[in-house]
C-alpha cells in the first residue's frame, strides 16, 4: 500500500508541471524575456535571395507599453528617414519625399522580403494572442496560440519555447485553416545588458517565398521610457531626434 502511494505521489509530482503551466503567464513571461515593455533597439534586416544576393536595412525601433511601436530607417540611403508607426491595429509609413504619413496594413511589407509589417512592428505576443494549449516536448513547450481578433496578421501561431529560459526557439505562423505562412527561427541567445538575455538573430522563411529568407539581427536593446506624443503622426518626421 505504501509503495502504491509513493508511486502515485511520484507520478503526480512529475506530471503536475505539465498541467500547471499557465499558457497566458508563460506567454507574458516570454514577452518580457524578449524585451522590456518600453525600450529602444537597433535591428539589421537582411533579405536574402535564392542566388545569395542580399539587401540590408538598418532600423531603429522604440516601443512603449502594450501597443505603441515606432521605427526609423537609418540605412541604406534610399530608405533613410522613412519612419513607421503602430498604435494597436493602426499602422502608418512616413516617406520624407512624400512628406506625410500614409496608412499601411499589417500584411504589407515596408522592406520587401519575407518579413511583413506586423513582424517588423511587432507587439507583445500576449497582446495579440490567447494561449489555447501548452504541450510539453522534452526540453521545450509547444504553445498553441490563437489570434484575439481578426485584425491580427496570423490567425494561429505554434510556438516552441525553451523551458529553461522561457525563450522562443521557433514559431510557425498559420492561417485559420492551418496553412503555413512562414516560420520564424530564434537563434544566438545573447546578453544585451540590463538583464536582457534573448536571441539576437531572428530568421524567417516561407513556403510562399520559396528559397528566399529574411534575417533580423538585434543590437543595443535597452530599457527606455518615452512620452506618449512620440507615438503620433506629428512626431514621425522627427524620430531621428530620439537617437
Amino acid at each position: 500500500m505504501r509503495k502504491i502511494l509513493v508511486v502515485i505521489l511520484f507520478v503526480l509530482a512529475t506530471a503536475m508541471p505539465a498541467y500547471a503551466v499557465d499558457g497566458t503567464k508563460l506567454l507574458q513571461q516570454i514577452d518580457r524575456n524578449l524585451s522590456p515593455e518600453s525600450y529602444e533597439s537597433y535591428r539589421k534586416i537582411i533579405n536574402v535571395e535564392p542566388d545569395g544576393r542580399k539587401k540590408e536595412f538598418t532600423y531603429y525601433t522604440v516601443k512603449k507599453g502594450r501597443e505603441k511601436v515606432a521605427g526609423l530607417f537609418v540605412a541604406p540611403a534610399s530608405e533613410k528617414g522613412r519612419t513607421t508607426l503602430r498604435l494597436g491595429d493602426n499602422m502608418w509609413l512616413y516617406i520624407p519625399n512624400v512628406g506625410k504619413p500614409v496608412r499601411i496594413t499589417s500584411l504589407q511589407s515596408v522592406v520587401g522580403g519575407v518579413f511583413n509589417n506586423s513582424d517588423i512592428l511587432s507587439l507583445d505576443y500576449a497582446v495579440e494572442y490567447n494561449a489555447e494549449k501548452v504541450e510539453e516536448q522534452g526540453k521545450e513547450y509547444l504553445l498553441h496560440l490563437k489570434a484575439k481578433t481578426k485584425t491580427v496578421a496570423y490567425d494561429r501561431l505554434k510556438m516552441w519555447v525553451q523551458k529553461e529560459k522561457a525563450l522562443p526557439v521557433k514559431i510557425e505562423c498559420l492561417t485559420e485553416a492551418g496553412m503555413l505562412i512562414k516560420t520564424l527561427y530564434f537563434k544566438d541567445v545573447k546578453d544585451f545588458g540590463g538583464g536582457i538575455v534573448r536571441p539576437a538573430v531572428l530568421e524567417t522563411d516561407s513556403p510562399l517565398y520559396k528559397d528566399y529568407k529574411s534575417i533580423m539581427i538585434f543590437a543595443k536593446i535597452k530599457k527606455r521610457d518615452f512620452k506618449d506624443e512620440v507615438f503620433t503622426l506629428t512626431f514621425m518626421p522627427k524620430m531621428e531626434s530620439l537617437r
Partner: peptide
C-alpha cells in the same frame, strides 16, 4: 558588398552624427 559580408551588425554603422547630407 553583397557576397562578401556575413550576417554581422557592426554598431558603428548606427552611430549618430549631428549633421546629415544625402539625396539622390
Amino acid at each position: 558588398v553583397l557576397f562578401a559580408a556575413e550576417y554581422t551588425f557592426d554598431v558603428s554603422e548606427i552611430e549618430k552624427k549631428p549633421y546629415h547630407v544625402g539625396g539622390y
